[in-house]
Design a binder for these strands. Structure first.
Length: 673
DNA sequence: CCTGGCATCATTTTT
DNA sequence: TGATGCCAGG
């Protein structure tokens, strides 16, 4: 890693002016080039805070920041701005969102909040013959949003019945968000884009903050990100994008490979530099990766050359079922760990879907190999955490309806669904919010005195804490929140709900973790505020656990999805579940060739994570919904080993084994319905 | 108003 | 398999 830069890398670092596209193959030292470039810009006289570097994940952002700091030493008065798209857009919205008719203070709704809105929207637009789940509605809305389609245009874009239904839901969903004073993740980008289009002065102000713009993982930009980048870079044209079209794996989130493919057309005179030397993997591994990705048709033509000749050929483990698969893989890992110089931290198990790791976890626990599962259901998905956060949101923004409805009767305080219904319909009828209604002088008629008293009591309590929050400058937020938790009797509620002391404890621990996170936030920030904390929770979310993670990770085997693995590397990699229906995923198989190409890229990403040793595994039968079903080996296995013509998946779908005896493959059984 | 039990239903990837 | 939703009884 300390070797000198090669000529292409050198050139990428030194081309400081004008549009630049760096096509960086996997393992080609991309991160290094980017950080060197930033350092070079600063040394050449650019003020650090005039540089904006945009990444997709928080992890990438903090890593980049750290590396630049290492390169430059700590003597700088200002820092380059390194942020994720979402974080930077949030900054912009905090300054200007009023122009779009949102309150200055607005909440960021996460998946759970979105779902509860979607649920109520669906209840309203009940259509007899179409049933739709909240997740489906949200998926469609999100897809539209990532194409910069607004609710008003969705009706025209809808094709299927479901899409028409979703188009109806879209408008209501958006309205509900606005009423609650909230934006969802997609809105962070979409509203920014809208601001830029509708208010040129806003764009002016935001674009003129920087002289240089860098975008990492450019192949993953969706329509709104693409437009935002274009708009921000237009004045100075000092735009450097870095990416690899072969690693575009977020098409389902609206990313379009075309963006990186047409960069040179978008920006005339753009310099294009290819980094085609791979310093990460052995030749044996890279050969397989190259062979696989060559099957894709939509891509920049390039061949990665291995800087590390030779190496061990990848192996394929065929196993009876998913339990055996876990056992064999973990067995293999155990053998590896006995070898000198091999540490658990050098090993990763990569999988396609989130249900796959289960079997591996069980097995690892059984043989006592430490592991970390990255992603998965996070701490922030826990009910207790979400409850407390809902309270906190209510303190900042009383009109946040999702938060209010979540905790209005939690712990139970005698405000039942009847009462809530009455409040809601009253609010709708009067064009106001539930909070306004319940704190108003006259409550809706027909409520029992008991309910009225409960409401009054709750409102008093919340108002007290709202006041305290508003005037909390200089005082400890942590203390405030502790007091809140005590007053609502949350601990007693946990005791009431859960008899098992272990469970009770772990749930209470989760509550404590929120308090701790707040404490950490307060310690870290010079002027902490509750809303600042909530922003961090919404955007950084999962990363807050990272400190714990990195402590463990030194010796623990890493388990994660292929998507999470992008950008990382491990000496030893296990790619498990190499079966038709998993990788490529069933949904992609049922879609089109484009979708298959994305799955192939996903597989490519997995392979190119491996430095020294790569193992594939598959199960011949796999339990699904409790029933075991036979599987077929992934077509990618055939492709990457150079036996594509023997791959059995090409038989037309839904026919019964037309050529069952054509070749003696081992995993060729037709899946039965 | 609250709780527990039963039936039903659908399963990708994430900022 | 597991999560969620609805209904009946306390």
């Amino acid at each position: 890693m300390c070797a000198a830069l090669n000529p292409a890398q050198q050139k990428a670092v030194n081309t400081l002016k004008g549009p630049l596209l760096v096509l960086a193959g996997a393992g080609s030292g991309k991160t290094r080039v980017v950080t060197f470039r930033i350092a070079k810009l600063i040394r050449a006289g650019t003020a650090p805070d005039r540089i904006l570097a945009v990444t997709f994940t928080n992890k990438a952002a903090s890593e980049m920041q750290q590396r630049v700091r290492q390169l430059l030493g700590k003597k700088l008065p200002t820092r380059p701005v390194v942020a994720t798209f979402h974080a930077h857009c949030l900054q912009i919205l905090r300054r200007h969102i009023r122009r779009l008719g949102y309150p200055v203070k607005f909440a960021i709704y996460d998946r759970g909040d979105q779902e509860s809105i979607a649920r109520s929207v669906l209840r309203e637009i009940r259509v007899p013959n179409e049933k739709m789940r909240p997740a489906e509605l949200l998926g469609q809305i999100s897809r539209w949003k990532s194409q910069c389609l607004r609710a008003s245009d969705a009706g025209a874009a809808a094709e299927t019945d479901k899409q028409h239904l979703a188009a109806m839901g879209f408008g209501r969903y958006q309205q509900a968000l606005k009423n609650a004073g909230a934006v969802d993740f997609d809105d962070l980008l979409l509203c920014t884009e809208e601001l830029f289009v509708r208010f040129p002065d806003v764009l002016d102000e935001e674009a003129s903050r920087f002289d240089h713009l860098l975008v990492d993982e450019y192949q993953d930009t969706n329509a709104s990100q693409y437009r935002i980048v274009k708009a921000l870079a237009q004045p100075h044209r000092n735009l450097c994008v870095v990416g690899d079209d072969d690693q575009s794996i977020y098409g389902w989130r609206g990313a379009e490979v075309e963006h990186i493919l047409r960069f040179a057309k978008d920006w005339p005179n753009a310099v294009v530099i290819r980094l085609e030397h791979n310093y990460r993997s052995t030749e044996a591994i890279l050969e397989h990766a190259n062979r696989l990705i060559a099957f894709n048709t939509v891509r920049h033509d390039k061949v990665l050359r291995a800087a590390r000749p030779g190496g061990e050929s990848p192996r394929i483990l065929q196993c009876k079922d998913e339990i055996t698969e876990a056992r064999q893989v973990v067995d293999d890992i155990r053998r590896q760990l006995r070898r000198p110089g091999i540490d658990g931290g050098d090993i990763a198990i990569l999988f396609r879907t989130n249900e796959q790791p289960r079997a591996f976890e069980t097995e690892m626990r059984r043989v006592k190999i430490p592991y970390v599962l990255i992603g998965g259901s996070s701490f922030f998905d826990r009910k207790e955490v979400r409850d407390i956060l809902a309270y906190l949101r209510l303190l900042i923004l009383p009109r946040d309806e999702t938060a209010l409805l979540r905790i209005i009767n939690l712990p139970p305080r005698g405000i039942g669904s009847k009462t809530v219904q009455a409040l809601m319909s009253h609010a709708v009828a009067n064009g106001t919010t539930v909070w306004e209604t319940m704190t108003g002088a006259t409550l809706p008629s027909g409520m029992t005195p008991r309910a009225v008293e409960a409401l009054r009591q709750f409102a008093r309590q919340m108002r007290k804490f709202q006041r305290k929050t508003a005037s909390s400058a200089g005082r400890s937020l942590t203390e405030l929140v502790k007091q809140l938790i005590a007053e609502i009797g949350y601990e007693a509620e946990l005791a009431r709900l859960y008899d098992d002391p272990n469970e009770r404890q772990s749930r209470w621990d989760a509550v404590q973790e929120v308090v701790n996170a707040l404490g950490a936030y307060e310690a870290k920030n010079s002027k902490p505020s509750l809303s600042g904390f909530m922003d961090e929770m919404a955007l950084a979310g999962r990363d807050m656990e990272e400190d714990k993670e990195s402590q463990l990770r030194t010796h623990a085997v890493t388990l994660m999805t292929l998507h999470c693995a992008k950008g990382l590397e491990f000496p030893q990699v296990y790619m498990v579940g190499m079966e038709e229906g998993i990788l490529p995923h069933r949904r992609s198989v049922e879609a089109d060739e484009r979708a298959i190409e994305e799955e192939r890229r996903l597989c490519y990403v997995g392979i190119t994570r491996a430095q020294d040793r790569l193992t594939f595994s598959l199960a011949r039968t796999r339990r699904k919904w409790g029933k075991p079903r036979e599987t077929m080996a992934s077509r990618f296995l055939y492709e990457l080993t150079g036996q594509a013509e023997r791959a059995p998946h090409r038989r037309p779908r839904r026919t019964r084994q037309p050529n069952a005896s054509a070749s003696p493959g081992r995993n060729r059984t037709n899946p039965r319905r």
